[in-house]
Design a protein around this nucleic acid. Sequence first.
DNA 1: TTGAAAGCGGTACCAT
DNA 2: ATGGTACCGCTTTCAA
Lengths: 339, 339
Amino acid sequence: MAGIAEVARVAGVSKATASRAITGSGYVSHATRTRVLEAASALGYAPSTSAVSLATGRTQNVGVIIPYVDRWFFAEVLEGIQDSLLREGYDLTLYDARPGTPGRKRVFEDFLARKTFDGLIAIGLEPDDHELDRLVAIGRPVVSVVGEAGPTTSLVTLDDQHAARRATEHLLELGHTRIAFLGGGGADGAHVDHDRLLGYHATMREAGLAPWHLPSPVTLPGGYAAAADLLGDVRARPTGIVGTCDEVAIGAVIAARRLGISVPSSLSVVGIDNHEYAEMFSLTTLEQRPQEQGSKAAELLLAQLRSPGAAPVQLHLQATLIMRNSTAPPLGAASASVS
Amino acid sequence: MAGIAEVARVAGVSKATASRAITGSGYVSHATRTRVLEAASALGYAPSTSAVSLATGRTQNVGVIIPYVDRWFFAEVLEGIQDSLLREGYDLTLYDARPGTPGRKRVFEDFLARKTFDGLIAIGLEPDDHELDRLVAIGRPVVSVVGEAGPTTSLVTLDDQHAARRATEHLLELGHTRIAFLGGGGADGAHVDHDRLLGYHATMREAGLAPWHLPSPVTLPGGYAAAADLLGDVRARPTGIVGTCDEVAIGAVIAARRLGISVPSSLSVVGIDNHEYAEMFSLTTLEQRPQEQGSKAAELLLAQLRSPGAAPVQLHLQATLIMRNSTAPPLGAASASVS
DNA sequence: TTGAAAGCGGTACCAT
DNA sequence: ATGGTACCGCTTTCAA
């Protein structure tokens, strides 16, 4: 309840001086500064954010647009963002924008227009043209996590093609030739899965091998069902599977076990993510660190807020291979090594 | 950029009238109202939230304090909250308060004091006394999801004892007598797991059976490891397991399968949650609907904001049994039925 | 039914 | 180094 006027009165100075002392801007003698600060803490003074925003034009708040909070990757990125923002004293406003929901429409039509934030972070948004227009129209800096580079926005993303390429190469190096790619290709065709599929295709083509793509929902049960289907036919079975993400890959591992196919001796499976369950399933995978991506995105945004002129930054991260025990040379192959 | 003054000018009225027309409060003739509204939409007018907040004292914003966003239950509750708030035009500010982190301290010391919200929702917070003080000191309505009832705050929670009781009873009714409880009891001793353990204990005691509690981290890998331990000893093995939550229960199912113990014929497993993976593992479970809990919490809070005098509400939800295929009578038992 | 003007709680410019 | 004061953009009495 105590306002800055009260603080000023108690400290025996003017509002102006009190403001300077508290915000730390402008000249204030050491003596008065401490006097003001003491008065403030004695009164339990906390500046009204709306008054500050109104006067300064800054909200000390960052908006985060996210399609799902209940998926591993998104939740991890969000944690990373939150962590960085908290450290810098920024609030975080969450906008849930699940594709195809009325809520998403409202976010773009109503909520963003309020501009209750100094900048935005969009996680795996994949906006359509109209949504993109709205986003740009806001006139606030935007950082994307996952996706394509725009000319005006910064970006933090995994190099998805590269990750899929490395996963595929890993199986090739072990001597596999019958390698299937599990995931994506659905109607919602996420950009991520598209890129990973591309990386797989290119790598297979370069190795002179036939690509073998099985669409699957990008979830653990989805991977399980798709893999169960795939592995059901005893004779036409791959010896290696690249999962578009760890959840799909783990689904495949579980399906294989249920069918009595032992991993890795009869079937190799590699994923992308390093999901929290990966270790438990001894899953070989290409690690990406979503929390770090989130932190990085927040830092890029805050930097942008500090120096508005600065050019946008595009960060392409490379996944690193973590070898566990879900991949091995195919049965009956001398252990091969391709440079 | 366009302010209400601009809108008023274009519509040929005063700021006051424009404000009335836009907010829908006070008398405005139908003719002028439409004129103002047209001017507003023509100019793409959006009211400045900081100005509105400063003038009205309301922020149209709800703060959500959450210890983890990357756990299923919490993420689901958050989705539910977001959904309800969005519908009512409220923003949602997220405060991450992972136990034992410096961030949590900052949330309680600095961020909450800013009062950038009209009310708070705390999900599974389990605040210590000091934190509770701070929470109350804010002077804004609070709704808790999960946990204990305070005299001043509303609450939405599952009846955890009851859920565990029902899970245990289910196994008893099938004829099991050697029933272990998996989960909780760790150092972080969450209230939830404590209550569920209590419900299990009481039910076993009433049935004249020896309780058998195995501590375990409340995660899928945690349940897996604990169950692997438990089931390793062939002779002293339970015929039924109650998991403190589905992730733990699913971990147990996976561990059993790996050990060649077939579920449900040699081992019954029941969980609590109805987690998104439950169906894939045919897990019998006691369903709670976290999204609905979140929506409900948001509605309670908004109701409280509308009528500040109203008494707090305590909602205790009952989980309902979903029978799948992870539970069956124990080997060699005539199918029993207890009324 | 409408308009004028006084705040809401700060910040920042301009003097002193 | 400090104080006076005009805003920031909107809501809300009070008078007309």
